[in-house]
């Protein structure tokens, strides 16, 4: 994700100090990985250099957070352009989930157990997200739903795989299996 564009987008709501910007970012997007102050100030100074933000006011005192930043016309255009660019669809071919399943099948272990344990783990995460969503504001709902739909997709994959287990197991153990894989 582009931190620069995200900070710019947040600045569109109104001028802010670096600290407020970081807090607002962390609230919305940083549940996993809050921004470091260093990242925030480095990004802001890049945006400043490129004319996408300007210093809107300086509070007396010292420390890095004396400046208040505002988005410029060029900054708004940049956000607008960024929003028109679709994101690359994420695919999860290297996920540990997939790997474990294949190894379980290749080694003749009970893949159904792997699936059911994984489902329990996923549902635990999904429950926590659902609780957060039902108690949260619209931004919470969005972020939780995004995660929930992804986890659901994993589970659907698991369900489908469970339904295909027998066929998969024999295909994977056959000698041609390696050539047959893309």
């Amino acid at each position: 994700m582009s931190i620069g564009h995200t900070l710019l987008g947040l600045l569109e709501a109104g001028p802010r100090h670096g600290y407020d910007l970081k807090r607002s970012y962390d609230e919305r997007f940083g549940h996993d990985r809050p921004l470091h102050y260093g990242q925030v100030y480095a990004t802001l100074s890049r945006l400043l250099k490129n004319g996408l933000v300007e210093v809107d006011g300086v509070t007396p005192g010292d420390g890095p957070d004396r400046k208040r930043y505002a988005i410029t016309e060029a900054g708004v255009t940049d956000v607008e352009h960024w929003l028109t660019q679709p994101e690359r669809p994420d695919v999860y071919l290297h996920s540990g989930l997939y790997t474990k399943l294949v190894i379980a099948l290749l080694t003749g272990r009970a893949a159904a157990d792997v699936l059911d344990r994984q489902r329990a783990e996923h549902l635990t995460a999904m429950r926590a997200l659902t609780r957060r969503k039902t108690g949260g504001d619209l931004a919470d709902q969005l972020v939780c739903d995004h995660a929930l739909f992804h986890l659901e997709a994993d589970l659907r994959f698991l369900e489908l795989t469970a339904a295909r287990l027998d066929a998969l197991a024999s295909a994977l153990r056959s000698p041609q299996a390696d050539e047959a894989r893309p």
Partner: peptide, 25 residues
């Protein structure tokens, strides 16, 4: 192989206010 992989969630699920026991079906 048996240990479930922690689901890769785009956000960490901050546990909300208590709403019953965790799922250990």
């Amino acid at each position: 192989v048996a240990a479930p992989t922690a689901p890769a969630v785009p956000v960490s699920p901050a546990a909300g206010p208590g709403t019953g026991p965790a799922g250990v079906g």
